[in-house]
């Protein structure tokens, strides 16, 4: 499915910390469930997630099969300069997805 929902302030004062919220559209199929015909559903989870801000890593997470579908992450960063937040995540299909949003520092 679709793009993630990313929520960050449009502008932040230099030196202030700000919250980054991201809701990622992903089934996070644990590999433990069966479909309606009793067949095991193949595992398909995001296993790693990375966020960089102005080129620097600010948050990294490893995911596990017990995490529910459409995972939500919230974390903070400190405003240093106007730049891009880049979110990258990789799932069991090897698919690397990313999205990006600009943050203006005043």
């Amino acid at each position: 499915m679709a793009r993630p929902l990313i929520n960050v302030p449009k502008t932040v004062r230099r030196g202030d910390s700000f919250e980054i919220r991201i809701l990622i559209a992903h089934p996070m199929e644990s590999g433990q469930r069966r479909d309606e015909y009793g067949k095991q559903i193949a595992r398909d989870i995001i296993h790693s997630f990375l966020c960089t801000y102005a080129g620097e890593e600010v948050f990294r997470a490893d995911f596990f099969p017990a995490i529910a579908a459409n995972p939500f992450l919230a974390f903070t960063a400190r405003a240093v300069e106007t730049g891009r937040l880049v979110f990258t995540w990789t799932d069991d299909h090897g698919a690397v997805a990313f999205d990006t949003v600009e943050i203006v520092v005043e």
Partner: peptide, 15 residues
């Protein structure tokens, strides 16, 4: 609304 997964579909609907 930032945590409610239903808004993933709202966003897709807007497209």
């Amino acid at each position: 609304d930032t945590q409610n997964p239903g808004f993933l579909w709202v966003q897709q609907g807007e497209t």
